[in-house]
Amino acid sequence: MDFVLRVAGLEKRYGAVNAVQGLTFAVAPGEVLGLVGPNGAGKTSTLRCLAGILPPTSGRVVVAGYDLAKDAVDAKRELAFLPDEPRFFDYLTVWEHLNFTARLYGVEDWEERGKALLEEMELTGKEKALPGELSRGMKQKLSIACGFLHSPKLILLDEPLTGLDPIGIRRMKASLRRRAEEGAALVLSSHLLPLVEELCHRLLVIAGGRAMALGSLEAIRARLSGPEGESASLEDLFVRITSAAETEKPPP
């Protein structure tokens, strides 16, 4: 199978702290992988390594056939990273951010696409606004519009619904679903388990930087077939898996 993202033995250490330990997984086109885990599990570090922001301590990341360590520029051209806290250049307007992104990724029909994205994100009329004039939710939408402008093959999302209102959340879910249907691979990190359950085809549960479970919800449920295994919700499974990880922790 031709995967958009292939990760093998990914590790990330901060000094003496092992934030990510030996993650191995792959994501196919059109697939949405949910990255879940408790606070400090290593989700953001994993996403930053996948986006080429943090250099992994060891392991291999291949995006759309490009090795992120060797062909970083080509790999980055195929992906979009949408962080939980959107960061912008303070002196570029909304429209100039799209223009800037278009030049970086060589999107020739960016004006057409940009207008459509701004409309989709309900940012029409805000073209001349600076980031400082936007609300938290609007910034999140602008980050998504910039991320989607070059039609990436891999979309990495860290808590994508933070700051969005209920209508924005509904639109965002539909937008993510559509990108997946169009063939993009999505890796979505979120604490909102209902969202993960609703959107993701497979789950990667991590705790303490290690992969605790990988597979579809049904597969994970079947693997943990306890007395109430079949009817267990994702929340039940999450608690069970992460509690097990806690007990496996070596003594300090």
């Binding site: 250049f89 303070d90 002196y91 570029l92 307007t93 100039e96 223009n99 800037f100 278009a102 030049r103 970086l104 990724y105 060589g106 999107v107 020739e108 960016w110 001349k128 606004a129 600076l130 400082g132 004039e133």
Partner: peptide, 30 residues
């Protein structure tokens, strides 16, 4: 913020060409 956004970009940034020019364009706007 607001009033600053009305100051125009130094030149029109085409989508075609060397990508790093976008960073120069961005910093000249700044």
């Amino acid at each position: 913020g607001g009033a600053l956004a009305s100051r125009k970009a130094p030149f029109r940034l085409s989508a075609r060409g060397r990508p790093e020019v976008a960073l120069i364009w961005k910093n000249l706007i700044t």
